[in-house]
Simulated assay, not measured.
Amino acid sequence: MRGCALALLLLGPAGSALAQAPMQSLGDLPARPYINPDVDPYPFDPFLALRTYLSQRLPAGWWARDPAYDAGAFSVVVNIAESWKGNPTSAMLQLCPQPSSTLWDRIQIIELKPMYHKTPWPSVTCRR
């Protein structure tokens, strides 16, 4: 009984402090653009849009990491299959969205960073 009372005394303040802590949505994370669900019930998610765009266009054996947002630009590391032959930097130019792509409605800059044979190559910056 005495142990239970001691446990309640120790956990009581922490429990009430945790109950009062405000919840944060993913949109409140730093370096993530603000999305207002009141304005658009289906807001544009640039991270999802970039993942979908690249998954549809990457050759077999290639894969892209999750996009990152920093300093107003989205960057994506693209891992190229070991068996592929060619210039990774020029291959990234082929992955840039066309000027008519709907991605450019909400995204200004995409940086594609090739990773080939476990070595980073010069990146390509895609702009509308």
Rank of each mutant, 00 (worst) to 15 (best):
F47A: 11
V78K: 01
V39F: 04
P59H: 06
P33N: 06
P46A: 03
P22Q: 12
S123H: 09
L95E: 02
P37E: 04
A49L: 02
R106T: 13
A91L: 08
W62I: 11
A49V: 03
A68Y: 05
Y116C: 03
N36P: 01
P114A: 06
A60K: 11
G27C: 05
P37R: 05
A91H: 03
C4W: 12
R127K: 14
A64R: 02
V78W: 00
R128E: 03
R127N: 06
P88L: 02
L48H: 10
A60M: 04
L112Q: 05
I107S: 00
T125D: 03
A71N: 15
P99H: 02
D70Q: 15
R128Y: 05
S90G: 07
A68P: 01
S75D: 11
R2W: 09
D45R: 05
G3R: 12
P88H: 01
C4E: 12
A7S: 10
S75Q: 10
P22V: 08
Y53Q: 04
P67C: 03
L6M: 14
P30H: 05
T119V: 14
D45C: 08
W121G: 02
V78Q: 01
P30W: 08
Q20E: 11
Y69I: 01
R106A: 12
P46N: 04
C96V: 04
P43V: 00
V124I: 10
A5C: 04
T52K: 11
Y42S: 13
G86E: 06
E111K: 13
S16P: 00
N79D: 11
A7E: 11
D66P: 04
R2D: 12
Y53N: 04
D70M: 09
Y69T: 02
Y69W: 13
P67V: 02
P122F: 07
R51E: 15
M92N: 03
G61F: 05
Y53E: 01
W104P: 09
I110T: 08
R65G: 11
L54N: 01
L29K: 13
D40G: 00
R32Q: 12
G61Q: 06
R127I: 12
L6K: 15
